[in-house]
């Protein structure tokens, strides 16, 4: 069994994000980058599946420039068996990312693509769905529990109405939600050991894909959050304030 896990490089969500002066994007100079937290959850799940089924191979993939190797190293340190970086200096929109992933899937022919439901930078929540549609594979989105059986997958999905359980045959695409698991921590020795594992590099051309932009960024602005903060000195006062604000709405 082969599991493909896309891992996107995103800015650390803990940091203060500032928009560039020309509004073309965000300032990244001081920002630490991480594996998209949802992708990390997907990878953790893949590792857990492998812990049950010894024969599974986990391939972490990324579409981006050389800096993306940092995240692939982390993925390898967490437990991916090997990694592939599709070299690309532009930032792709979800459609084009899905195109690249589709080409990769055709090359690697995995049984399962396990990925985050969205990346925390763009918050698009589209790539997984696009990919499944392009491959014409069954998909389960927002997974909060995955049961990997011999010939099928049972997935609990978090929906607004509650938990829905779906059954999928292989091969399939699953996008994961926050509550699926707690990813493990890749420490420095782990990352160092992961240096022995291979990160293959492929160009978009090799895969026969071209970036055909569907989405164009016009400008980036920071949202004005006007938070009103009040310090209260006691819980009674807090209750009073809450009551007032409820009344006024």
């Amino acid at each position: 069994m082969k599991i493909l896990v896309p891992a996107k490089r995103v800015p650390d969500t803990d940091q203060k994000i500032e928009v560039c002066e020309d509004h073309s994007g965000i300032e990244t100079g001081h920002l630490p980058f991480v594996v998209n937290p949802f992708d990390a959850i997907a990878l953790e799940e893949a590792i857990r599946i492998r812990e049950d089924r010894v024969d599974a191979e986990i391939v972490a993939v990324s579409v981006g420039d050389l800096e993306y190797e940092e995240q692939l190293r982390t993925a390898l340190a967490m437990g991916a068996d090997r990694a592939i970086r599709v070299d690309c200096i532009e930032s792709l929109d979800p459609w084009n990312t899905a195109c690249v992933l589709k080409a990769l899937v055709e090359q690697e022919s995995p049984d399962l693509v396990l990925m985050g439901k969205q990346a925390v930078d763009g918050d698009c929540n589209q790539t997984g769905q696009f990919l499944a549609a392009m491959l014409d594979w069954p998909q389960a989105t927002f997974a909060s529990r995955i049961k990997c059986l011999e010939d099928k997958l049972l997935v609990d999905r978090e929906t607004d109405a509650g938990i829905e359980t779906v059954e999928l045959p292989f091969p399939a695409v699953i996008t994961v939600d926050l509550r699926l698991n707690e990813p493990r921590y890749a420490s420095l020795p782990g990352i160092m050991k992961a240096k022995k594992k291979e990160i293959a590099e492929i160009s978009m051309g090799d895969l026969g894909v071209q970036n055909a932009e569907k989405m164009h960024t016009v400008s980036v602005r920071s949202a004005k959050t006007a938070r009103k903060r009040v310090m209260v000195s006691s819980s009674c006062e807090l209750a009073e304030k809450l009551r007032e604000s409820l009344k006024s709405t």
Partner: peptide, 21 residues
């Protein structure tokens, strides 16, 4: 345990955060 990535949850996050920030 840490070297093998066997620490999870809040304490693991604190290490991750220490590393980044």
């Amino acid at each position: 345990l840490v070297g093998e990535g066997q620490l999870r949850g809040a304490p693991a996050t604190s290490l991750q955060k220490t590393q980044r920030s």
